[in-house]
Amino acid sequence: MPKMLATVVDNLVSRPATRPHPYQRREAFVRARGRIIFDISRCVFCGACALRCPAGAIRVNRAERELVFMPFQCIVCGACVEGCRRGCAQIIPQYHSPAYSKPEEYYRAPLPVREDDQL
């Protein structure tokens, strides 16, 4: 009984082990693999990310300078981030929020403008 009493007191004074989820969100860990974002201004459309993606969630069209990313097919392994030499693919700790549909994300970069073109 005295043993149990300690547990009872402990449970009375301690905070709950759970949190009211949608109202109070846990802060993401710094190194958590939340989701992938692309900084398309740095992209050279080499396709290294698409080659390394185990889920086939990235399509790169070099001619059109277009990158298509399917966030709901992505397994957030981070292989594309490791493969990207330009720092275009990045991983952020915030998770993708749930959605009703699974839209693809289109990234398009304008064609590079040469200096003599501007004249």
Binding site: F29, V30, R31, A32, G78
Partner: peptide, 28 residues
């Protein structure tokens, strides 16, 4: 168990499927 899961997320980035091993070493 949640304590351990938090350690996994802190160190490897994910709770369950941590994907840290790679051929020739580890990724993190």
């Amino acid at each position: 168990r949640e304590t351990v899961m938090d350690v996994l997320e802190q160190t490897a980035g994910n709770r369950v499927i941590i994907s840290v091993c790679s051929i020739g070493g580890v990724r993190r």
